[in-house]
Design a protein around this nucleic acid. Structure first.
Lengths: 335, 335
DNA sequence: TTGTACGCGTTATCAG
DNA sequence: CTGATAACGCGTACAA
């Protein structure tokens, strides 16, 4: 851990010259350059980014805060964000908030303290409080997956309204009438959109809506489904708010030995990435998660570099992928 | 982004007093405390961790470098590491190296420059070079999943030898004789162990070994399997080196309309987390990934805090989970 | 082309 | 209990 001064001394120059060696090498005389170079190598000198940050006011660190890294959507999203961050020369920080919503606050404070250059966040609540906090500290923010109204910041996410529409329409086309919407964070933008897509289609088909909200967590899906089973209210088909919710639904169904799609049809928003390769089974609407991550990072960096464009809202198209879990005719073929 | 000096001025005290307000509040007279408190709140002051780091030499940042965050093992591992880091008051940085091994170098240099307090890494190669680099800079390191011999650092990983043994033995018990080992990074410790577990069991059973290495990536599984199919050399059963490799294997099999387990039995190391809930299908050896992440982080922080114990090697037990993909009798039952 | 001096925001020491 | 002061390592005017 040598310092710039040690390098300077060893090379017989001033520390300003060593700085120039890194920042503006052209300005150095060849001989000087060589001597500094040798000194740097001999001492394994690496400039101290912390010290530089103090001066420049830039840390070259950006952060990603998501509910859960184990959720396939966020895993892929993080992958895209990380790739883009690396490409643009930033170091990426990761924080998750789902296990304890208090963590969102803790993390933001730590990041503010560390003076990170910017933050990509999927907020846990629809409250503007945390966003305002970042604004006060002039830290650029990009929202992903969950928009917050009346807050002028960039947003990147999948077309959740369309997701709800596509899945509901598909289920109806399959001939299902009793279709329930299960799970989702009531306050979240993505939930509201998905739900409203569901409602639109149900209404125009003249079908009765059945909505059971809660959270995006697996436990939510499990609890709701268990209740429905116990009260003998299980619908013909379920549209799960997310891939995590559907995991809980599967758990509940399995406990009662119910089969998909023989006993109930299932669909959800977000593909469950590796599962779909091993055994393509679940009908889903896939969001371009990796792309969303990349785009969010690009947006963020644009802001960091000083872009003053009005806040952008990027809604990316989603895709319906029909597989066995929602096919009514499968009920005859199988078993 | 106010500074300690602005707070001091506003409170009518010196900046030293403001520091005390945060570090040793007891030392302040109640009146002073109040005045500082108000000033802090009015200005939304948050101490600058960067400046503090410059002085203390500690950034309170730790880093995680893995091949791919989209691999279920690493996703869970990262989750555990992140939880533990948060619990211990550290901010976690994430980097992936699989898409471009050059990135490992780039990342390490950035982290050295940022003077992170410590690094957890699953090295992409078995070379000691990068580890030595970190040692030179006196940055504590913990290895995960891939040990590197002759390098005295802590290691945490699953029992890969046992993983190989368990899966191979299981396949043999199922009555398979022509069992191939597919995929894996030849230089990686985990691969060597898994492979040697396979070999031990095959030898003592008097069966012929068939080994096809490559990498841990999906493409590797796909390529090898495709070759085997085209040369009509497909074995009765495959033991895939990892969950990512098996994804490629599935892809290849599907292209040729081959079914599992009817046409070939499949197993692998690492569970594919969400897939196993939706459709429990794959016989695997599960590693305690979350726990490994937690433990690695705890180890790292112990080192950071100055532990001088000799390097620890934590090999955690793994568990065989038998499911349909490797059951020979299924060949008769299904279609 | 190179060196000097100053400031970035903290913390710790040492007087007072 | 509180205030100066030096130091952490670096980058940039400005001067030479």
């Amino acid at each position: 851990m040598s310092t710039i001064l040690e390098v300077a001394t060893r090379a017989g120059v001033s520390h300003a010259t060593v700085t120039r060696y890194f920042r503006k090498p052209d300005l150095l005389a060849p001989v000087t350059y060589q001597r500094v170079k040798e000194a740097v190598e001999e001492l394994n000198y690496v400039p101290n980014a912390t010290a530089r940050a103090l001066f420049t006011g830039q840390t070259d660190i950006v952060s990603l805060i998501v509910p859960a890294i184990t959720s396939s959507f966020f895993t892929e999203m993080a992958d895209g964000a990380e790739d883009k961050a690396h490409e643009l020369g930033y170091t990426l920080t990761l924080g998750t908030t789902d296990k304890d919503i208090e963590r969102e606050r803790t993390y933001l404070e730590a990041l503010i303290s560390h003076r990170v250059d910017g933050i990509i966040i999927t907020p846990g609540t629809d409250s503007v409080e945390h966003i305002e906090l970042l604004k006060r500290h002039k830290i650029p923010v990009v929202l992903v997956d969950r928009q917050i109204k009346d807050t002028h910041v960039d947003f990147v996410g999948g077309d959740s309204l369309d997701a709800g529409v596509l899945l509901t329409r598909h289920l109806i086309q399959q001939g299902f009438k009793d279709i329930a919407f299960v799970g989702g964070e009531p306050g979240a933008w993505s939930l509201k959109e998905r739900l409203s897509g569901y409602r639109q289609v149900m209404q125009s088909a003249g079908l009765e809506e059945r909505v059971y909200l809660g959270s995006y967590k697996p436990e939510c899906g499990k609890k709701i489904t268990t209740n429905l089973i116990q009260e003998d209210q299980l619908p013909e088909a379920i549209l799960a708010a997310s891939s995590r919710v559907i995991l809980g639904i599967f758990n509940a169904l399995r406990e009662y030995q119910l089969r998909v799609p023989e006993d109930i049809a299932l669909t959800c928003v977000d593909d469950v990435a590796p599962a779909s390769i091993i055994n393509p089974f679940l009908t889903v609407v896939e969001q371009p998660a990796y792309h969303i991550g990349q785009m969010a990072m690009q947006c963020l960096v644009n802001r960091i570099k000083g872009s003053t464009e009005p806040p952008d809202t990027h809604i990316l198209p989603v895709e319906l992928i029909v597989r066995r879990s929602s096919i009514k005719s499968e009920r005859l073929h199988i078993s």
